[in-house]
Design a protein around this nucleic acid. Sequence first.
DNA 1: CGAAATCATGCATTAATCGGCATTAATGTG
DNA 2: CACATTAATGCCGATTAATGCATGATTTCG
Lengths: 275, 275
Amino acid sequence: MHDFGMDHFVGERQARIFAELRAKGRVAAQDLAQAFGVSEDTIRRDLREMAGRGECERVYGGALLPSGQTVPLKTRISEQPDRKMVLGSKVVELLAEGSVVFFDAGSTNLAIARSLPEGFRLTAVTNTPAIAAELAGRPGVELIVIGGRVEPSVGAAIDSTAIRQLETISPDLCVIGTCGLTLEDGLTADIFEDAAFKRLASAASKNSLAAVTSDKLGLRAAFHVGMLQAPLSLVLEADADEVLVQELALRGVAAHRSDAAEPNNEKKSSRGNTP
Amino acid sequence: MHDFGMDHFVGERQARIFAELRAKGRVAAQDLAQAFGVSEDTIRRDLREMAGRGECERVYGGALLPSGQTVPLKTRISEQPDRKMVLGSKVVELLAEGSVVFFDAGSTNLAIARSLPEGFRLTAVTNTPAIAAELAGRPGVELIVIGGRVEPSVGAAIDSTAIRQLETISPDLCVIGTCGLTLEDGLTADIFEDAAFKRLASAASKNSLAAVTSDKLGLRAAFHVGMLQAPLSLVLEADADEVLVQELALRGVAAHRSDAAEPNNEKKSSRGNTP
DNA sequence: CGAAATCATGCATTAATCGGCATTAATGTG
DNA sequence: CACATTAATGCCGATTAATGCATGATTTCG
């Protein structure tokens, strides 16, 4: 258990506890009291409060993750496989054969990797084990893994080791994951370190590209990743807001729309089809 | 039986017992008491409680899965086709909770990672994306990825970047993959750089362990990894040559045999008791 | 049947928890 | 500015959970 230092706001401390919990799966009241330099009573109060909020499950001596909680990534994969695959194949169309591409963490980016056609020649760089495993052994793909401690809540290596290794690479394209997108705040992420890593990866690359599902449009997550400006490109779903796309065009951001997702039922037949 | 470590919350311990139960189909109170470092009374109390919850069925000396459960059958079906999983679970029994373990490349080592029970606390270090993806997000597992160019023929990062990163880590145990094992030449590998990396990983670790399927016994691959000598341990399949095992013992190499393919007949009633 | 192992129960001990109360510091109010 | 209010925290005492040990009952098996 490491020493978290002495001065913390309440919410800050609870956030740390929550992070520790996600990382280790369990926390002991005694250890936390030691680590934060507060009494066990205070920690218990925190845990009680967090349990009330559903962030943890109290047990005698500490707390555990609420049962059924594991990697968000795996769950996110099963959420909307089809839509993400459609988006993914659209992104693949934009990849230049033979280029060096960094794949950031995120279920959407995993879908992109899955959509890569067999034999596509590419140098892939990633800090995300799930994406690396998907790409490993593909003929034509040269795979570079960014190492480091894998942050459980992100599912990727974003620590100082990873940053140092990233600094030795200048990809042609950074395929960036995002948790929210608004016109005012640009791309945002839920986790501080993750956002920082995304900024670095983006800065190191000649171009950036973000594939964003429509459920993230209009959302602003806590931490800023980057504004919507060149050399960023976006790939959006077919049902993305038209006004947004035009506004993006004004800012010099190329916004590609993925093709409509062929539901058997012609619900959205009014969409402009190629005649 | 594992050494499950010493500090557990009650619910955790019961969850582990339940996992063990699902995996093996039966648990003995004595073994569990030993494994968790608590008295048999405590284990009995756990089992009683779990039985009350319907998670197990109490029997004299331990507990079984409730009679209606289909789980053991399922497990056996999925285990049967894969000898490596049997080997893997044997290896997992030898892992100390809370230790730092390096997982080398190889399908056997992937099976070991798969066999890791849910919630097992471990710091895992690996240069193999497939293993990293398997371990990513497991509660209790702290995952460190060794980065670098992934050599396609090996499926792992073994280049200079990987070596440099490996040098910053000193695992408690190196779970090493191998392509061949003979008494004269020890462990050998098919690929030069891979063999070199294995040597380094092994040297950096306090102990080494190789799980070797019987088809590799007596084979000598082109490149030398290490001789059969302490602090190396081996885990072999049940049908491994008896002469080989005895010869290994002479050299101070602990050789564990995985259990034979389960004729459910090893009740311990006839076990040698201390008179 | 009879010995050895295992079990259930009660009791004692230790540690964690909860509720209440006092203290401190920040914030609000007259 | 003085005073009330509130939030955060630590401390104390009563309560409860978890565990080990002792004892007598129960089961297993030769």
